[in-house]
């Protein structure tokens, strides 16, 4: 993780920066994937930094891309590996939006490097990616693709962005696309208003969205999810839910939840 420079962060710069978050994540293979012998192509991960900054990442490998399981894994691991290094630099901390963009570039490069390593075309590792950087003051959420995002501000639950208009249910953008930058959507929010963040792949969209076209969260689902996270729901319990829910898409499913306290 961070080098010497980060350890010398001025305490007063951050106040008592150690926000406590409870984070839990899980994934389950979709029924369609099981039938056709594909592995689970979703991946989630997170890391927290010395100053209390939290980084969440969730990726969904393209169903038709043979190695997208590796694509999703490398996208998430690339994002989580580089974000702390970037966050060390004051000029990056001062521009969370720019940092998030740089994290996406790093994630993409990680996938491209893996493609070279296994000698396959990048398109065969295609994956979506959603990243949230939650620092003391500001939170930035970035997304390439059709992942779901729900943010609880203590009162209500909403998504900070809507899906781009697209005709087909399976149209998505991927970090491996040549024009990925055009597909990257960013939103910056004030962290103090956020009591919970959840990222999910689109496998749950029919049961967890009130409007699948825009990606608007179905509030009761996420209320229950945030409450469960606060009460200490385990990865196993989340995984059991994902395995058994009738999602009606047959897609892989994944959830990553972070709540304060």
């Amino acid at each position: 993780m961070a080098g010497g420079e980060c350890n010398q962060l001025n305490e007063s710069e951050w106040g008592s920066a150690h926000e406590r978050w409870t984070i839990v994540g899980a994934k389950a293979e979709g029924n369609s994937h099981k039938k056709s012998g594909l592995p689970c192509q979703d991946f989630v991960g997170w890391t927290s930094l010395d100053d209390g900054t939290l980084i969440l990442a969730a990726a969904d490998g393209a169903g038709s891309a043979e190695y997208s399981e590796q694509g999703a894994r490398n996208a998430v691991e690339g994002a989580l590996r580089v974000a702390p290094l970037l966050w060390c630099r004051p000029q990056m901390r001062a521009d969370i939006s720019r940092t998030t963009q740089a994290v996406f570039l790093a994630a993409r490069l990680s996938v491209m490097r893996e493609a070279v390593r296994i000698e396959k075309p990048p398109r065969s590792l295609a994956s979506t990616l959603t990243v949230a950087i939650v620092s003391l003051l500001e939170t930035c959420v970035g997304r390439v693709g059709d992942g779901l995002i729900a943010i609880q501000d203590g009162v209500s639950i909403s998504s900070p962005m809507r899906h781009a208009d697209r005709e087909y249910a399976n149209e998505a953008s991927f970090v491996t696309d040549r024009h990925w930058r055009n597909s990257l959507t960013l939103a910056v929010l004030e962290s103090r208003e956020i009591s919970g963040i959840a990222l999910s792949s689109d496998g749950l969209r029919l049961v967890a969205c009130s409007d699948v076209r825009t990606g608007t969260p179905f509030e009761p689902f996420f209320e229950d999810l945030f409450k469960a996270a606060e009460s200490g729901v385990s990865e196993e319990q989340l995984a059991r839910f994902l395995e058994s829910v009738d999602d009606r898409t047959g897609d892989d499913k994944s959830l990553l939840v972070a709540v304060r306290g």
């Binding site: 369609s32 994937h33 039938k35 056709s36 594909l38 393209a62 169903g63 038709s64 891309a65 398109r123 295609a126 781009a164 697209r166 087909y168 249910a169 399976n170 149209e171 998505a172 953008s173 696309d177 040549r178 024009h179 055009n182 597909s183 898409t249 047959g250 897609d251």
Partner: peptide
């Protein structure tokens, strides 16, 4: 049955248009 596992590319990227439906 396998259509929902397929992907339609959102962008017109030359190499992908050539790939056709991208349904396996």
């Amino acid at each position: 049955a396998s259509v929902s596992q397929s992907d339609t590319h959102a962008e017109t990227d030359g190499q992908h248009v050539a790939q056709g439906t991208q349904v396996t």
